[in-house]
Write a protein that binds this DNA or RNA. Structure first.
Length: 432
RNA sequence: UCCGGGUUGGGGUAGUGGUUAUCCUUCAGCCUUGUGGAGGCUGAGACGCGGGUUCGAUUCUCGCACCCGGACCCA
């Protein structure tokens, strides 16, 4: 027996069926909005991360040298790849570019609840529009996708903010403030004691008094007050942008899920505008379910024409936790429409019936293990067959087959000649 | 990298420094080439890995691996 690699998971058919349903739900809604599916490589040049970010992420790469001497890495996220794709065909692609994809990513990091080393995300991005409608459409997709999966406004909320509100406000206190450090402090403020929080703000360059006022202002979330105190063009414009996004979200049906929360800052430093995170409203899942936002500088940093972008990337692990706690995780079970049971040498007829039923799109199994009658019924039961078609020598003597409803146990004889015929999905109930 | 709790058949468990490791479930076959989800019989299947102590270790001890949760991080 070989071990599974730590942080990597197997999905057996029951659980996979539930995951499939969830993934299909997310993608179905994306397609309705006209997002187009893309496919992307598992390996990229390691330099896409080692040169651009030079961050902690580099330590978490599954990077190695391939047999051709290339320095490659399993991709830890999608954004650089889509940026590369956009840059490569920038002139050819009509804007806005609306893409999505579901696939695994890999990071060598500590395994925890909702976090594995191989993890699946559905990424969804819009490139080429800086209008608030683009931000709002991403929010609307996220809201529609979650409600498609059975969640309601009672289960989740989007905490929404704007990167430059905090940045601009900080600069209005003192130009030399380390905004990145201060924003990181804000991002984790709810986990910190007030003194610690204020201490971090002071470390970033705020005076003690300013730190306290800033913290109160951020926690209060009153946009008008923020504009007034900051008295800065950046802040005023950012607040206007945030409000414009929320106004569009109203028309798109997503406003009701959004809460203004200036404390939402996201750890990512490539975000440039509106940022948001999805949280479990009940507070049971303490960490954010997923996040997203605007990153207008990234394409240019990857060598393309300046191209605004906004996107979101729900991770399936945390999403599944949310769905389970809300009681709407799909049932983890396999389903089967028909089991065609053979008794004696009835394979030609049984095979014909199985093929006809499959041609109508049904999930049909028949014996491939040479099992006895009882054992076949046992098996039909174990695969949750809805109806069993008994093709036995005795039945065929009368030119009939027997249909058995596996839940009620009721049976009905039908002529073998016309079965299944034109009936797409014949059942015992329907034939009585 | 750090902290806490774990690891006994496929799943869930009992137990022990000393014969063949308990029970439930599961799986396969049979009772029953023609009726599953009830019963009976038969069979399959486990002490995470390595070192130490010991006549003898699944049990004590150390290290490691893995699992669960958390810190950090979350690009």
């Amino acid at each position: 027996m070989y071990d599974r690699i730590k942080g990597f998971r197997d999905f057996y058919p029951g659980e996979m069926a539930a995951r499939r349903e969830a993934i299909d739900g997310l993608e179905r809604v994306a397609r309705r909005y006209g997002f187009r599916e893309i496919g992307t490589p598992a390996l990229e040049r390691a330099a896409m991360w080692t040169e651009k970010s030079g961050d902690d992420i580099v330590e978490e790469l599954y990077a190695f040298e391939d047999q051709g001497g290339r320095h490659v890495t399993l991709t830890p996220e999608l954004t650089p790849t889509v940026a590369r794709m956009v840059v490569a065909k920038q002139q050819a692609l009509s804007k806005p570019i609306k893409w999505f994809s579901t696939r695994p990513f890999w990071r060598y990091e500590q395994v925890q609840q909702g976090r594995q080393r191989e993890f699946y995300q559905t990424n969804l991005d819009i490139f080429g529009s800086s209008e608030p409608e683009a931000d709002a459409e991403v929010l609307a997709w996220a809201a529609d996708a979650l409600t498609e999966l059975g969640l309601t406004g009672e289960h989740f909320e989007f905490r929404i903010s704007h990167r430059d509100i905090l940045g601009g406000l900080l600069e209005s206190y003192d130009e030399r403030v380390d905004t990145a450090a201060a924003i990181r402090a804000v991002d984790k403020s709810d986990k910190l004691e007030q003194a610690e929080y204020h201490g971090l703000l002071a470390d970033a360059g705020l005076t003690a008094g300013d730190a306290a006022e800033f913290a109160d202002l951020v926690a209060g979330g009153d946009l008008e007050e923020v504009v007034e105190v900051a008295d800065s063009e950046t802040v005023t414009a950012s607040v206007e942008n945030l409000q414009a996004v929320l106004a569009a979200a109203e028309d798109f049906g997503a406003r009701e899920y959004c809460t203004i929360s200036l404390e939402t800052a996201r750890g990512l430093d490539y975000y440039t505008g509106v940022v948001f995170e999805c949280f479990d409203s009940t507070g049971e899942v303490s960490r954010s379910i997923f996040g997203g936002g605007r990153y207008d500088d990234l394409i240019e940093r990857f060598g393309g024409q300046p191209t605004p972008a906004v996107g979101v990337a729900p991770g399936h692990a945390t999403l599944s936790l949310l769905l389970q706690r809300a009681g709407v995780w799909p049932e983890e079970a396999i389903t089967t429409d028909y089991y065609v049971l053979q008794v004696g040498d009835t394979r030609p007829v049984a095979a014909r019936i199985a093929r006809d039923l499959r041609a109508h799109g049904n999930v049909v199994e028949t014996d491939v293990a040479g099992r006895s009658f009882g054992a076949q019924l046992n098996y039909a039961d174990s695969i949750n067959a809805e109806t069993t078609v008994i093709v036995g020598e005795q039945d065929l003597e009368n030119d009939e087959v027997t249909l058995k409803d596996m839940e009620s146990g009721e049976q009905v004889q039908v002529p073998v000649e016309g079965f299944p015929g034109e009936a797409t999905r014949p059942t015992v109930d329907g034939l009585e």
